[in-house]
Amino acid sequence: MNITPYLIPASAVVSEEEIKKSRFITYLAHTSGIESAKSFVAEIKAKHGDARHNCWAFVASRPEDSMCWGFSDDGEPSGTAGKPILAQLTGSGVGEITAVVTRYYGGIRLGTGGLVKAYGGGVQQALAILTTNEKAITVQFTLSCEYTHIALIESILASHNAVQVSTEFSHNVLMTVEVDARSADQMASEIVNRTRGQVSVAGLNNNS
């Protein structure tokens, strides 16, 4: 598992320009998976159903995860729209992002090179005004402990900025916590050591 944080869009962006009477509108949005990306594409297509083309590309997971990339020329000549859009997204280092470029045709052909420049350039301009957040990769622990250990465990969790997801109280305490994956092993070891092995740690689950 890659535990390195990566950037994701903080908010949606829209930019627009006119090139040889064709109107190009570029939309960028945070999409947390392939289905979310496809949903956003469908939303923009519905919004601009009268446009000649709604070309798109997405990076639906980590920036470098090519298994979660997708693109479409949506009727433009092959390789002139989807690939240039995708190239800008992958080059940005931002993950979980979808770009849709809507084109209202103005009657003047741009040629292959002109289309590549228009679609790629539109996304480049939109990326220039995009704000981002850092997404930390988290994992979850399940802790089983005695009531007498709660205060100590909560102190350790706080020192690692861990979050209690749920807590069940019965004959003992069953606590599910979430923490930055980079701190996971250290925090688990600290809990076990400081309670002299009386607290069990189980179920490290990737929650990215």
Rank of each mutant, 00 (worst) to 15 (best):
N2F: 04
T4D: 14
T4K: 09
P5R: 00
L7M: 07
I8P: 01
I8S: 05
I8L: 10
S22N: 08
S22M: 12
T26M: 05
G33F: 02
A37G: 08
K38E: 14
V41P: 05
K45F: 04
H48D: 14
A51R: 01
A51W: 02
N54E: 13
C55W: 01
V59K: 04
R62P: 06
D65C: 03
S66A: 11
W69Q: 05
G70E: 12
F71L: 13
G79D: 10
T80S: 15
T80R: 12
A81D: 12
A81Y: 05
P84Y: 07
V94D: 02
E96S: 01
E96Q: 09
E96L: 01
V100Y: 00
V101M: 03
T102L: 01
Y104S: 04
Y104I: 00
G106K: 08
G107L: 12
I108W: 10
R109V: 03
L110D: 07
G111V: 04
T112D: 15
L115M: 13
A118P: 11
Y119H: 10
G122D: 05
L127K: 01
T131W: 02
T132F: 01
E134I: 00
K135S: 02
A136G: 02
I137H: 08
Q140G: 06
T142C: 12
T142P: 08
C145W: 09
Y147N: 07
H149V: 02
L152V: 03
S159M: 12
H160S: 15
N161P: 09
V173W: 10
E178F: 00
A184F: 03
Q186K: 13
M187A: 07
M187T: 02
S189L: 14
I191A: 11
V192G: 11
T195G: 10
R196K: 09
Q198W: 05
N205C: 11
S208T: 02
